[in-house]
Amino acid sequence: MSGRVFGTDDEPGCARRGRGHRQPEPVTCRTVVALLEGEETLPVLTDLRYDSAHPYSVFVAFNAGTDMVVEWEFGRELLTSGRWRLTGLGDVQIWPAEIRGHGLVYMSFRSGGEKFVVAASAVVIDEFIESAIEAVSHGEEERFLAVDVMESFD
């Protein structure tokens, strides 16, 4: 797998976007993942997102250069655990690997009879996880569950 698959000039990396002072800012990491298609890898622009309005979840949006963006939502803890060991029993499985000295995180997604696997840079995944934990620490998620409801009464 060539290192070029993971490079993009389209604002790579993690960014925080302000949404006011009442809750932490959302985190978005833009990167390119490698979609594994048999013996080939196809680069796919991908956004990893975390928002305290959904404190237990992360969102991954894949844009394969078409008008259709495919988005998956799964547990933040699943991504965190998958960084270190095979995790997941259902539609999403995540596991670490190292190829030629480069850390990777593989993510497998299944919907019905369809399945696809992508490989992401472990550095990007680590940066995203760290930023998400800075936004909402592990164990503090419950404090953010009703924030949107309470704000509507202000």
Rank of each mutant, 00 (worst) to 15 (best):
M1K: 11
S2R: 15
G3V: 14
V5G: 04
V5E: 02
V5A: 06
F6Q: 05
E11S: 07
G13L: 06
R16Q: 04
R17W: 05
R17F: 12
R22C: 02
R22N: 01
R22Y: 06
Q23N: 13
Q23K: 12
Q23S: 13
P24I: 09
E25D: 12
P26H: 10
V27M: 05
V27L: 13
T28D: 09
T28Q: 04
C29W: 01
R30T: 12
R30V: 09
V32A: 14
V32D: 10
V32M: 10
A34V: 13
A34F: 13
L35N: 01
E37T: 11
E37V: 12
G38E: 07
E39W: 05
E39Q: 10
E39Y: 02
T41C: 14
P43L: 14
P43K: 12
T46Y: 10
L48W: 12
S52C: 07
A53Y: 04
A53V: 12
H54C: 00
P55M: 01
S57L: 01
V58C: 02
V58F: 00
V58L: 02
F59A: 06
V60R: 04
F62I: 05
F62D: 01
N63I: 08
T66R: 08
D67I: 02
D67Y: 00
D67G: 07
G75S: 15
G75F: 04
G75T: 11
G75C: 02
R76H: 01
R76F: 07
L78V: 14
L79T: 07
L79K: 03
S81F: 05
R83M: 10
W84P: 00
W84A: 04
R85K: 15
L86T: 05
T87W: 08
G88L: 09
L89I: 09
L89S: 15
L89H: 14
D91H: 05
V92R: 10
Q93S: 01
P96N: 06
P96I: 03
A97W: 00
A97L: 07
E98Y: 05
G101T: 13
H102P: 04
H102K: 15
G103L: 02
L104W: 13
V105M: 03
V105G: 03
M107D: 07
S108Q: 15
R110G: 11
R110T: 15
G112S: 05
G113K: 05
F116M: 15
V117D: 15
V118D: 06
A119Q: 03
S121Q: 09
S121T: 06
V124I: 11
D126L: 06
E127G: 02
E127V: 04
F128Y: 09
E130K: 12
A132G: 10
I133A: 12
I133C: 08
I133S: 03
V136I: 13
V136D: 08
S137W: 02
S137T: 07
H138P: 05
E140M: 03
E141P: 00
E141L: 00
E141V: 01
R143Q: 00
F144N: 02
L145W: 09
D148K: 06
E151T: 09
S152P: 06
S152Y: 05
F153D: 04
D154Y: 08
